[in-house]
Design a protein around this nucleic acid. Structure first.
Length: 275
DNA sequence: ATGTCCCAGTCTCTGGGA
């Protein structure tokens, strides 16, 4: 079984590229982030034509997560089971004169389902923008909610896989220029501690062991030719419980999907499981 | 390199977010 994750940066703008990649890579499960669609606008039919069921959790203009599966989709959970998200709320955008400015309202950043016997979770962590902002605090609070959901509703002995855009580079090896990122988001001690808490719960990074080399990034800024210079970061991850991790036979990132006409700024990442 | 790409609304341009 092949399970992939891909921040598509608009499923509407990327639909052709995603359909093409399904044909090329043939994942059994594809976790997507930043669909930027309402649930009503989710492209259920195109995925069905390609042989996939689609579960989508969106809010419109910002965020949005989805799971496409050709091995079944059952027991769907959205937003940690906390109820509906704010329709079309900004990318963490509450301004000082709006209610809730001290914290982020719920946004469409989490969807989970049982696919092929595995509890899969597609996540799009908040960006955080800059240290010591409400958006950064909201990012840490969102990770707190993710950990609490795991601790309260899941068990590390179960088959579980969490994939997505974590918006955190866990190690300096995951950043093209660690010096340039001192004092920035994605690399701070608190963000890295949030990922460490996931590992302490019982999840492991199932990609890095297969790719210990430097320069193995999943995201490159669109600007300045950064992709072609490989100036990127490894911020998309696949974390799995031990029983799933033991089944992983390969992990890959498809750089080709970041090339060509109108790519996402992220490359898809996937693992193959035995059995 | 303030470099690109996405979105909605003010709609063939602008502004916000990443």
């Amino acid at each position: 079984m092949r399970i992939a994750t891909w921040n598509v940066n608009s499923l509407k703008a990327r639909l052709d590229r995603v359909e093409e990649w399904l044909m090329i890579a043939g994942p059994d499960v594809l976790l997507m982030q930043e669909t930027k669609l309402s649930d009503e606008a989710a492209p259920v039919m195109p995925f069905a034509m390609a042989g996939y069921e689609l579960a989508h959790h969106g809010q419109g203009r910002w965020n949005g997560v989805a799971i496409a599966s050709r091995v079944g989709i059952a027991d769907v959970v959205t937003n940690f089971g906390d109820g509906p998200v704010v329709a079309s709320a900004g990318g963490g955008s509450t301004t000082a004169d709006e209610p809730g400015a001290e914290g982020l309202g719920p946004e469409a950043r989490m969807i989970s389902a049982r696919c092929g016997g595995i509890r899969v979770v597609s996540i799009y962590a908040p960006n955080g923008r800059a240290l010591n902002t409400p958006f950064y605090d909201g990012k840490l609070a969102w990770y707190e909610r993710l950990s609490r959901w795991l601790e309260e509703t899941q068990h590390p002995a179960d088959q579980i896989l969490i994939g997505g855009d974590f918006n955190v580079a866990p190690d300096d090896l995951d950043v093209y220029d660690p010096q340039a990122y001192v004092g920035a988001t994605h690399v701070s001690a608190a963000e890295r501690a949030a990922l460490a808490r996931l590992r302490e719960w019982g999840l492991v990074d199932v990609v890095r062991p297969f790719h210990p080399e430097p320069g193995f990034y999943t995201w490159w800024d669109y600007r300045a030719g950064n992709f072609h210079k490989n100036l990127g970061m490894r911020i998309d991850h696949l974390y799995a419980s031990r029983s799933v991790a033991e089944r992983v036979t390969a992990a890959e990132r498809d750089r080709d999907a970041r090339k060509g006409k109108l790519p996402s700024d992220h490359a898809p990442l996937y693992v193959d499981l035995a059995g």
